[in-house]
Amino acid sequence: MKERLVQLEVLRYNPDTDTEAHFQRYEVMCQEEWVVLDALNKIKADIDPTLNYRWSCHMAVCGSCGMMINGEPKLSCHAFLRAYEGVIRVEPLAHFPVERDLVTAPDDFMEKLKRVKPYIIPKEKKPISEGEYKQTPAQLMKFRQYSMCINCMLCYAACPEYGLTPDFIGPAALTLAHRYNQDSRDGGRKERQEVVATHEGVWECTFVGACSEVCPAHVDPASALQQMKITSSIDWIVEHLIPGGKS
């Protein structure tokens, strides 16, 4: 198997000893087909056990290992070394506080996720004994794409709106609201609108589209947010401009 000497420049920050972050250069022999995460793992095992980052599944589904790789938000388990030449610069996910090295604090995202009520608020409740809610394949396809979000937060790191206006609820959380709104079993859209159709909600989005470009799960949050803007606008028109339309 072909090997290659890879140089990585990794952002280091240890609150115990550092007042600011600095870059550290590592050289490590890697196999051609490896991903950036493999290189980091080799560094940690053989060169520097004090390097810190999160990872688990190594198959782009657990969403742990998001980082900035040459300025682009990426899952490091899905960032192939073959795509890079020269020194690879590895930094923690942008727009999140850095706890240490490549480890960021996702608290803000977790809080926002909860705010959009990402669970079924049933249209009509029925007991388990009555079986499943019928849902045709077409009804499933209507929301399935938006249920694929792995919560890796790459979209938050890519979104300049979130970087500049941290109150923005952001792509992944809003997309999840859309996912439940689109589900034939759900009747909770009105409740979610209180969070979604606000200045901090979809109206903070200026459609940069970066979220969809970096999404490793092909969710297309930009699409979800634009659709929600349209439906929210329709809500407004019905409520304010059509006599008797007030809901």
């Binding site: 600011e20 972050a21 682009e72 942008a94 506080p97 604090a105 970087g163 589209g209 970066a210």
Partner: peptide, 23 residues
């Protein structure tokens, strides 16, 4: 703990990536 906040430069952020320039 002493989390490090890496500020986004409010006036020059769009030079950080071609997609921001396109935007």
């Amino acid at each position: 703990r002493n989390p490090l906040i890496r500020e986004v430069p409010p006036t020059s952020w769009y030079f950080r990536h071609p997609r921001y320039l396109r935007y």
